[in-house]
Design a protein around this nucleic acid. Structure first.
Length: 890
DNA sequence: GCGGACTGCTTACCT
DNA sequence: ACAGGTAAGCAGTCCGCG
């Protein structure tokens, strides 16, 4: 960029006089660009050290403290190398293995027998066999195993003639070498290391001794195993995360047609803008000049450098320079789009592989030098959405996620990207990069902290946290704990051979075992309802009953009488279960330490957010552990473990219901881990809590108190009002995403009336107002006063259009109509359709008009929405329809 | 040939 | 591609009906 000198405070440009003049005029006329600020910016222009060519330095001999981010394997050197980030120098170091560690797998055959296998010993990658001792948890005994060592990972597995196939039965042979290496060296991604004289050294950053002692006291009564875990987790949960300097990138491509996303592999259209937004001093947008396209006006932040290009090749070269210099690049969907498009477009324009700092990996797109983190798969991860962000966003588009978390979204466009003036386009592109960046910086870097903490807990490098799901994270955590203790990592079939049977029948057809109890609600309005719930029921049950894959149905005869109620499974009495300790520990440290501090008002915002990050990261692991053991795709899948967990959960809620009755408290409703109590006294609540702690050994807490609750006859459907007037709506049609907007809005008007209700008497006037809402809505429907979009039913396509073979739901009909008009429809798309009077009675909003709307159907929708609440209030919908007819008569 | 009873499919929610 | 349980709405099938 040095050949493009700064001529204007605001705009950097190439050599185009006309554009310069235009820019000058435009910018001085712009109200949102303040000259003083620009002046400051010019004076503070960063000093660009010309020595920086790439983000990475290879094989350093000495470094400052660095954070371990990633690991890869160099096929030529036949060595693993780490990517370490130095937050002070803003550099990535590549450290190559100096220990001589080699890939291997395990066999149960003795060394002597294996040596007779000519195919094995003659394998070009074969190195040696060493006898080792491992502990077999499933059999609860030590075993001798043979460790077969190879020169490179592919010799172990991954080709048609790999060692793991030659020896037929191999253990630990499917663990990627990168991960195997980290475990063996006990390296934890996300923690600090430094290089001293070429050697890797762990940098310990434990909490202050006083804090350590305070926490150790909290674990005084816990098992020895739990105390050991605590000791090994201090570093993980207390080492601060450095402020990683990072740059978010977004690109715009000249699209061929409306609503068609350009194909990155074909990369047929020019890249017309690329923006970078950073949490330090890189904020710039690169724009391609186009014939007849006016400059237009800038509508985003100030202090953004704008660089124009005549040639797309020059633009790409500047972008690639950034991608080589910057250690940490963030995108939103860069794997599928931005980096992918850049790569293929560059090839198409004649760039050589060496000139492109991007590598296409199997399930990711990586940078040759720095780290690429794609926010799309991360936010798309269900566990992250639910446990870390409280289900804040309903779909994973940049706009939806940003609106939910940052309260701001993409710039609304009044025309197509291809029609935007140059600076408008630049603003739009820059804004996307900026909100992408802010998704990692908001709330004191909550997301970034989470990412690093998830790495530490799962023991996985950053790329796996980025792109893998919760089961892979939990697997990472479990495998590590196995490896460092010398436990053999079991194969899925080893567990299933002993533990595939279940003893309960699921209520839902096709499910493997019985789940939770849902208590039949007592319909009606109930005042002063107290909801008690068990503090993380399943994790508690796993901890208190010593549940783990190796302890449920253990091999000992003497444990067989230790039966889980409601099942035929028994639990080990001799050995402490690994899952039990691990989940129990994570749960305890969260509730005993981090949860409180995350809410503490005495702390600085910065500190509080840190505790929040830790608390959320722990929550992800705690809450998902039960589920993964019941999932066939999880490598430690163990049906009896999952089944025992829900059985004990049912036992806990069942006993609580019985105890409530015994205390004379009516249970109005309950679901899985909660009971809704009708107007209990303080003493009764205390009594129940005390009983739970002593009898079940699970904490039962007051979760919420309602001024009143309207329970319908349906389970998982209710509405409650808190003392402060806040309304709590669960499961009702009025809050479902697919309910038409006009229904949702009428419903929300009803809530506003209901939240004013304090007494039985208040309901009378409330009812009248609710009648009015319904009547008004009916009238507007009949007079077609609602815009089409308000009538739209919004349903997500959960699989490709072609895969709907058994039935054709309405949203699929609508989607196929759209497709026949040339629109591309893909999985995850939310189809907006309306119901019409003529067959097929469905039309996508885009193709429908108001006069073909099926009014009767919409009246039914409204009726269904209100009925769910009205039947709790003891009102029959007929009354309203009668009332409507009557009032219209007069 | 049509409608009611029934089952199955699909989606969105709750814990 | 972490679990099971529940509700709603529609699609599709079967059966009876002189």
């Amino acid at each position: 960029m040095s050949n493009q000198s700064t001529l204007l405070p605001f705009i950097k440009k190439e050599n185009d006089e006309t554009l310069e003049e235009e820019a000058k005029n435009k910018i001085t006329a712009e109200s949102n660009v303040q000259p003083t600020k620009n002046q400051e910016f010019m004076n503070n222009t960063r000093s660009k050290s010309s020595d920086i060519n790439v983000a990475t330095i290879d094989k350093p001999t000495n470094t400052d403290d660095c954070i371990l981010l990633d690991i890869d394997y160099d096929g030529t050197a036949q060595k693993a190398y780490l990517k370490l980030y130095d937050p002070k120098k803003n550099k990535i170091y590549r450290w190559y293995d100096t220990t001589g560690h080699k890939p291997y797998c395990l066999s149960k055959e003795p060394k002597q027998i294996l040596l007779q296998n000519q195919q094995l010993v003659n394998h070009p990658g074969f190195v040696d066999i060493i006898e080792v001792e491992k502990y077999d948890l499933l059999e609860d005994r030590s075993i001798r195993m043979s460790k077969i060592i190879a020169t490179d990972p592919l010799s172990i597995g991954g080709t048609s003639n790999s060692i793991r196939d030659i020896i037929k039965e191999a253990w630990e042979a499917h663990i990627p070498y990168r991960k195997c290496y980290l475990m063996d060296l006990q390296l934890i991604p996300g923690l600090f290391y430094k290089i001293e004289n070429g050697q890797l050294v762990r940098v310990k950053r434990s909490p202050p001794e006083s804090v350590k002692r305070e926490i150790e006291q909290l674990f005084e009564d816990e098992t020895q195993e739990a105390k050991q875990l605590l000791d090994s987790f201090f570093d993980l949960l207390f080492t601060p995360v450095p402020n990683i300097k990072r740059v978010a990138m977004d690109i715009e491509v000249l699209a061929e047609a409306v609503d068609v996303i350009p194909d990155p592999k074909a990369a047929e259209h020019p890249i017309i803008a690329v923006a970078f937004a950073s949490n330090y001093d890189i904020n710039e947008v690169h724009i391609l000049k186009r014939k007849d396209m006016p400059q237009g006006d800038w509508i985003s932040e100030d202090n953004v450098e704008i660089i124009f290009y005549d040639k797309e090749e020059d633009l790409l070269r500047a972008v690639f320079k950034r991608l080589s210099e910057e250690p940490f690049i963030i995108t939103f969907n860069g794997d599928n789009f931005d980096l992918n498009y850049l790569y293929h477009r560059a090839l198409k324009l004649g760039f050589s592989q060496d000139e492109i700092p991007i590598t296409i990996a199997k399930n990711a797109i990586l940078l040759k030098y720095g780290i690429h983190f794609d926010l799309y798969p991360f936010f798309h991860n269900r566990s992250i959405n639910i446990y870390a962000f409280g289900n804040a966003y309903k779909e994973t588009s940049l706009d939806a996620v940003a609106n939910a978390l940052l309260k701001k979204g993409k710039i609304k466009l009044e025309k197509e990207i291809s029609e935007l003036s140059l600076l408008r386009l630049g603003s739009y592109c820059y804004n996307d990069a900026l909100i992408t960046l802010e998704l990692t910086t908001f709330n004191e870097n909550l997301t970034m902290n989470l990412i690093i903490l998830l790495m530490r807990i799962s023991k996985l490098p950053i790329r796996d946290i980025n792109r893998q799901n919760i089961s892979a994270w939990i697997r990472g955590m479990f495998y590590y704990e196995h490896r460092i203790r010398g436990y053999l990592i079991p194969r899925p079939q080893d567990i299933l051979a002993m533990k595939s049977e279940t003893s309960t029948k699921a209520i839902i057809k096709g499910k493997k075992y019985k789940g939770a109890i849902v208590v039949n609600p007592i319909a009606g309005i109930h005042f002063n309802v107290v909801v008690l719930d068990f503090a993380s029921l399943y994790p508690s049950v796993i901890k208190t009953h010593n549940l783990s894959y190796e302890t449920v149905r253990c091999p000992h005869k003497e444990c067989r009488d230790n039966i889980i109620p409601g099942t035929t499974h028994w639990v080990c009495k001799k050995r402490v279960g690994l899952t039990s300790v691990l989940v129990g520990f994570l749960r305890d440290i969260r509730v005993k330490w981090f949860k409180e501090l995350a809410k503490s008002k005495d702390l600085s915002e910065d500190k509080r957010q840190w505790y929040r990050s830790v608390e959320r990261a722990l929550k992800v692991f705690i809450n998902a552990t039960y589920g993964v053991f019941g999932s066939e795709s999880f490598e430690l899948y163990c049906p009896p473990l999952a089944e025992s967990t829900t059985a004990l959960g049912r036992y806990a809620i069942q006993k609580t219901i019985e105890k409530s009755a015994e205390l004379g408290v009516q249970v109005l409703y309950g679901d899985t881990d909660s009971v809704f109590l009708a107007n209990p006294t303080q003493e009764q609540i205390e009594e129940l809590k005390k009983w739970s702690k002593s009898f079940l050994n699970i904490d039962l807490d007051v979760d919420k108190i309602y001024r009143w609750v309207a329970l319908s006859t349906r389970k998982k459907n209710y509405l409650g009002v808190f003392p402060d007037g806040t309304v709590d709506v669960k499961g009702l049609l009025g809050k479902k995403r697919n309910t038409p907007k006009f229904c949702q809005e009428a419903f929300s008007e009803m809530l506003n009336i209901l939240k004013e209700v304090h007494t039985e008497k208040d309901f009378e006037s409330a009812k009248k107002k609710i009648f009015d809402i319904i009547r008004e809505s009916y009238r507007k429907l009949e007079n077609k006063q609602y815009p089409l979009e308000d009538l739209a039913i919004k349903v997500q396509l959960t699989k490709p259009l072609k895969s709907y073979t058994k039935t054709t739901p309405q949203h699929v009909k609508a989607a196929r109509l759209l497709e026949s008009k040339g629109k591309k429809i893909s999985v995850g798309h939310i189809i907006h359709f309306v119901k019409t009077v003529t067959p097929p009675n469905v039309k996508p909003v885009e193709l429908a008009s108001l006069n073909e709307i099926d009014v009767a159907k919409y009246k039914e929708h409204l009726k269904a929405t209100f009925e769910q609440v009205l039947d709790a209030l003891g009102i029959e919908f007929k009354d309203i329809e009668g009332y409507t007819a009557l009032s219209e008569w007069f």
